[in-house]
Amino acid sequence: MMESRKILVTKLVEYKAPIGDILEDLKSYGWDSEINLVTLTPFHLINVLERFISNELSDVQVRNWANAIEHREDIGLLSEYKDTLDEMIFWLANPVINYPINKDLAIRVIKNLKSNNVQ
């Protein structure tokens, strides 16, 4: 049985399965969406970066995750952090033109998010 689009997008945002597998399953739904099925929050970003810092995820996996969620029409950004989340996802999705994904960057991003009273 095929999982619903909302379940798949939730798995993507939460990085609950290999990104390639999730994207393969999402192909059947297409790219366009009239509504946000899931809202990306600072917690999602912090979770992925903490997993990177602890060596559970590689820099390539973080980049692929950010690329997979960047500009998806079915993923919204938590409104009070929209600009920050958008910028940080852009950084992570495009390390060649921005900053290399390393532990220093991950720590800075987490501190930035947490200093804005994010839990």
Rank of each mutant, 00 (worst) to 15 (best):
M1V: 03
M2D: 05
M2G: 04
M2F: 09
M2C: 07
E3G: 02
S4F: 01
R5W: 01
K6L: 02
L8D: 01
V9G: 03
V9R: 07
T10N: 09
K11G: 01
L12P: 09
K16G: 11
A17R: 14
A17S: 10
P18Y: 01
P18F: 02
D21T: 11
L23C: 07
E24C: 08
E24Y: 13
L26E: 07
L26K: 09
L26W: 04
K27A: 09
S28E: 13
Y29R: 09
G30A: 03
W31D: 15
D32T: 12
D32W: 12
D32R: 14
D32V: 10
I35G: 06
N36W: 07
N36D: 09
L37W: 11
V38P: 14
T39A: 06
T39W: 06
T39D: 08
T39F: 06
L40V: 06
L40E: 11
T41Q: 09
P42C: 08
L45F: 04
I46C: 05
I46Y: 07
I46Q: 10
L49E: 04
E50A: 10
F52L: 04
I53T: 12
I53A: 10
I53M: 07
D59R: 11
V60A: 12
V60R: 09
V62Q: 02
V62W: 00
N64E: 14
W65T: 00
W65L: 00
W65M: 00
A66D: 05
A66N: 04
N67H: 06
A68N: 05
I69K: 01
I69A: 02
E70P: 01
H71F: 08
R72M: 00
E73S: 01
D74E: 01
I75N: 03
I75A: 01
I75D: 02
G76H: 00
S79K: 06
S79F: 03
Y81K: 04
Y81A: 02
Y81T: 04
K82L: 00
K82M: 05
K82A: 02
D83Q: 04
L85R: 03
D86I: 02
D86P: 03
D86M: 06
I89E: 07
A93M: 08
A93Q: 08
A93F: 07
V96S: 12
I97C: 10
I97K: 14
I97D: 12
N98T: 15
Y99Q: 12
P100T: 10
P100S: 13
I101M: 09
N102S: 11
K103F: 08
K103C: 13
K103T: 15
K103H: 12
K103W: 11
K103D: 15
A106P: 03
A106L: 05
A106D: 01
I107A: 12
I107Q: 13
R108E: 15
V109A: 03
V109N: 05
V109L: 03
I110Y: 05
K111P: 07
K111G: 14
N112F: 10
N112W: 08
L113P: 00
K114L: 13
S115I: 06
N117C: 09
V118D: 07
Q119E: 14
Q119Y: 13
